[in-house]
């Protein structure tokens, strides 16, 4: 009992030592930050990085907005970046303190959600496509029809990740609309195609890496990095399809919080991860590409040629950045999603 109390007191005491010398609080997606990268950063700069996990953009946003969260850096997805800026939760970056900013690959520099990259720097990017076990289904996998008009071989064996915006966008593009459409006709078609397809899905769940690998599922709407792991687990049986009707590209980017206490350390870290060899460490850990020019040569062999990571030329055009969806577009999505999950 006494031990317990003193232990508690100790933890309480150390936890209040915020903003001490050489610290950095990084708020990032779980299992997304390479420990080797942090060790290397600490060895070079003496700054200790503490990582705290989140598992959804909405939780991260709500937490920081509530105030006093104690984080310095956060890593939101592209469609959330403008929200963070608009709400005044992040600082504009002083680019003169980021000499490696020039390493950002040209196609990732002038992005719609942050032109000129004045508020965010690349962490990792990937796509939402379709993973299919080609032993079970030998047909065309580069189409959303795989989950929207499920082929007989895959009925009752296909999963759909429970990501509202990704799934609604895939379906809207499949019926010929734009993501976050406010066109009632388009959204009606979207709803109908989804409701008709749902009985053929086995589940709407995460965990595709496991369940595709062990054969519980024969296909799933899934992320590229996860599918690459599955392909390696299954000796190439499971392949990744890029829907030609349009598929979402996501990018998670590092942003500096308005109430950051360790601003100098944060700049050092951001500059550090824009060095190609360091960016490659991030990719080697989480298995996604990173958006820093020249990092490819430092990547693990199996990633350099992976069709999930290096998007084949013919599929590049179909990739779409999802817009920040508000207003009527969001209402449509939530209504359809509720209908779909009830």
């Amino acid at each position: 009992m006494k031990h317990l109390l003193s232990a508690t007191a100790m933890v309480l005491a150390t936890a209040t030592l915020a903003a001490a010398e050489g610290q950095l609080q990084l708020y990032n997606w779980g299992n997304y930050t390479s420990p080797e990268l942090l060790a290397k950063f600490q060895a070079e700069t003496g700054i200790k990085v503490t990582v705290t996990d989140y598992d959804s953009n909405d939780v991260a946003l709500a937490k920081v907005e509530a105030g006093g969260s104690g984080f310095d850096l956060v890593v939101p997805s592209a469609s959330y970046v403008p929200i963070w800026v608009e709400k005044g939760l992040v600082q504009e970056l002083d680019l003169s303190r980021l000499p490696n900013h020039k390493n950002i690959a040209p196609e990732w520099l002038d992005v719609d959600w942050d032109p000129g990259r004045t508020h965010s720097i690349p962490w990792q990017w990937g796509s939402t496509g379709i993973a299919v076990n080609t032993k079970v289904y030998g047909g065309d996998i580069n189409t959303s029809a795989v989950f929207l008009e499920v082929p007989p071989e895959l009925v009752g064996k296909i999963n759909v990740v429970p990501e509202m915006v990704d799934i609604l966008s895939l379906a809207t593009m499949y019926v010929g609309g734009e993501p976050c459409s406010t066109d009632a006709e388009v959204m009606k078609k979207t709803r109908d195609v989804l409701l008709a397809a749902k009985p053929n899905w086995i589940s709407m769940d995460y965990g595709a890496t496991e369940r595709l690998s062990n054969g519980d599922w024969a296909a799933s709407v899934n992320w590229n990095g996860s599918t690459m792991r599955v392909r390696l687990n299954t000796n190439g049986d499971v392949q990744y399809g890029y829907p030609r009707e349009g598929y979402p590209i996501f990018m998670d980017s590092v942003m500096l919080l308005q109430d950051a206490k360790n601003v100098d350390e944060a700049y050092k870290f951001m500059d550090f991860i824009m060095l190609p060899e360091n960016a490659a460490m991030i990719s080697a850990f989480a298995r996604y590409a990173n958006g820093i020019a020249g990092s490819e040569e430092f990547m693990p062999e199996d990633m350099k040629t992976a069709p999930e990571v290096v998007v084949p030329e013919e599929h590049k055009a179909a990739g779409v950045f999802l817009p920040t969806c508000t207003g009527k577009g969001l209402e449509y999505m939530t209504a359809i999603w509720t209908e779909l999950q009830k």
Partner: peptide, 13 residues
């Protein structure tokens, strides 16, 4: 529980 969570997070209502 899931439905309420949907409103607070992805649904933003």
């Amino acid at each position: 529980g899931n439905f309420i969570e949907l409103q607070f997070l992805q649904g933003k209502n």
